[in-house]
């Protein structure tokens, strides 16, 4: 569903993502790991089409369609959704009001309950929220959007362990086909702590460093390698590429 080829992304002429090849098929959930500043968030922003990330080489295809030149709105309407790492606060716009604007008020109660956010739906979106509440609100937003490709930018950072489980279960729910008319999705999750791996079924993991994907393979084994060796490319024999 998502096909990235030889992708280079720059900000004001400075490359932040280089020569990335990544393919996420329908039904697959991939996790992206790497140190701070390695380009993970830049890659997700480029997939979403956010400014100031500029694709200077390579291509991004979604559902067999090139999307490099599309605006974020057009990408959203194709079925791409993103849980932001640092979303803006929408002062005066409650979660309930946002759900109405997205035409998803009927889905709100179920989504809010799944994310332990029922008590927050009358609060302004991301305004005065704790770090954990912001992360859950972003996942809630994706549940309301109902996208086919879900991009999660560090959904677990700043979240207590109990709510990491809640977020992980919500992602797992989103990945499972809930009904006949629900879309079959795929997802790409950035994780620092790896905690979310305890709650989702990741099909593949990737290590990113200095803007490049330096390893791909089984997510849990890659994470285990990172814990013992840091963000280095493992030997060929330790990880299934």
């Amino acid at each position: 569903m998502l096909d990235i080829r030889d992708l280079t992304v720059e900000i004001e002429g400075k490359p932040v993502v280089q020569d990335v090849n990544l393919r996420v098929r329908t039904g697959e959930l991939h996790v992206l790991m790497g140190p701070n500043g390695s380009g993970k968030s830049s890659l997700l922003a480029a997939i979403m089409g956010l400014s100031p990330y500029e694709v200077t080489q390579g291509s991004i295809h979604f559902a067999d369609q090139p999307i490099d030149t599309l605006a974020p709105l057009e990408r959203a309407r194709l079925g791409i959704g993103m849980a932001f790492q640092r979303p803006p606060s929408l002062d005066g716009v409650t979660i309930k009001r946002l759900a109405e604007a997205l035409g998803a008020e009927n889905a709100l109660a179920t989504a809010a309950e799944a994310l332990d956010m029922t008590a927050l739906v009358d609060r302004d979106m991301n305004s005065g929220f704790s770090g954990g509440e912001i992360k859950r609100a972003e996942v809630l937003k994706l549940m309301l959007q109902n996208p086919r490709l879900m991009l999660f930018d560090e959904p677990e950072s700043g979240v207590d362990l109990e709510h990491v489980r809640v977020i992980g279960e919500a992602i797992r729910t989103l990945m499972s086909k809930q009904s006949a008319d629900a879309p079959t999705r795929c997802g790409l999750v950035i994780t620092h702590t790896g905690f979310v791996l305890n709650h989702v079924l990741a099909d593949q993991g990737h290590i990113m460093r200095s803007g490049r994907l330096i390893a791909s393979g089984d997510a849990l084994r890659l994470f285990s390698h990172i814990q013992s060796h840091g963000y280095r490319a493992p030997n060929e024999e330790t990880v299934d590429a």
Binding site: S51, P87, L90, V93, A101, D124
Partner: peptide
């Protein structure tokens, strides 16, 4: 941009921000 990335067109996004402001 945040709202447009969630699928709202620019006019709807503006209206929502203004409604929130008020």
């Amino acid at each position: 941009i945040y709202l447009m990335a969630a699928g709202l067109d620019e006019d709807a996004a503006r209206d929502l921000v203004v409604q929130g402001f008020l």
